[in-house]
Design a protein around this nucleic acid. Structure first.
Ligand SMILES: [Zn+2]
Length: 125
DNA sequence: GATGCCGGGTT
DNA sequence: AACCCGGCATC
């Protein structure tokens, strides 16, 4: 997957952080262009459950006023990077196969395997 | 409820 | 071989 680095959020309520580029009107991003085609809200990933980004920055993260900083890596990270969502056995490989794409109404557009309820052979993930 | 698929079925 | 469903796992 590609990594999005530049965000252009619409005039939302209270954006805790603002890139030094606030133009008078409309959104002028420091990026070359990008132009999200539509206005706000777009989905990443070519499949997988609704991971629709709408543009919201979280974690106000009150900084300043530190009393101590005596530790490098402690509390956080309870379990080592074990495979929690993988290799458990059958974890529903990211889906968007012929069926969900074309729908029941257009069953004749599915790949043969899908029509016979077998492993899809067109979208092999 | 929906989707994806194996095992088993019919022609 | 071509074709399909029951039933399960998974979300
Ligand atoms: Zn298919």
């Amino acid at each position: 997957n590609l990594t999005i680095s530049c965000f252009v959020l619409p005039p939302q309520a209270t954006a805790p952080v603002s890139i030094p580029s606030s133009n008078s009107s409309s959104s002028g991003s420091a990026c070359t262009s990008f132009t999200p085609t539509n206005s706000s809200n777009f989905s990443i990933s070519w499949q997988s459950p609704p991971v629709t980004f709408t543009g919201s920055t979280v974690s106000p993260s009150k900084s300043q006023g530190f009393g101590e900083q005596r530790s490098q890596t402690i509390a956080v990270l309870s379990s080592p990077p074990r495979a929690t969502t993988a290799l458990s056995r059958k974890v529903r490989g990211e889906g968007k196969k012929c069926r969900k794409v074309y729908g029941m109404e257009n069953r004749d557009m599915w790949c043969t395997a899908c029509r016979w309820k077998k492993a899809c052979q067109r979208f092999t993930d």
